[in-house]
Amino acid sequence: MHAKTPDNELIQDVLQGNTAAYAELVERYRSFVFTIALRYINSREDAEEVSQDIFVKAFRSLADFKGASKFSTWLYTITTTTCLSFLRKKKLAVQSLDNEHVFAVAENVDGGMSANQVEQKSRVQMVNEAIRMLSPEDSQVITLFYKGEQTLEEIAQIIGKEPNAVKVQLHRARTRLKEKMTKHFSAEVRDIY
């Protein structure tokens, strides 16, 4: 089995003209980038287009990546700024956990399902849906911490906050996630606890 080539080696390859090596980086991080984009942008089509744009931007600016941080941290910073500027341009309404309309929609979705369908819903799907109900900031912090392999300091760098503020935000995001799961998926949560 081949060992995974380190990101920095792939970047050097790309900078030396081997553009094909960039495909490996795209493969490695496409799901992370797409997931974070989806936390901000509700439409899958738009999120995919923005994610592609993020990788193109990262490629164009690759010479600026000096390796002072992890490539993923640098890439997620581009992801955050690109998503925010997309939302500013499109002036899309960002779904928030305080948005009553979103709650109503979520409740109706569940209400429209048969008991059997609700039972079949896997725990993973349930958590994913609960994460989607959070604000983009909360869901991004949770995604970066759990799935993006980022430390609190790295998340702070990505979202432009102090590490202590990120720690508190992560704590609050998890508390809100727990509340969401209890409120909207109480049947599944009862099974779990």
Partner: peptide, 14 residues
């Protein structure tokens, strides 16, 4: 439980 559940989530695939 919450920690393990969040850890078990899958990333979205483009």
């Amino acid at each position: 439980e919450v920690h393990q559940l969040v850890q078990s989530t899958a990333l979205e695939e483009p």
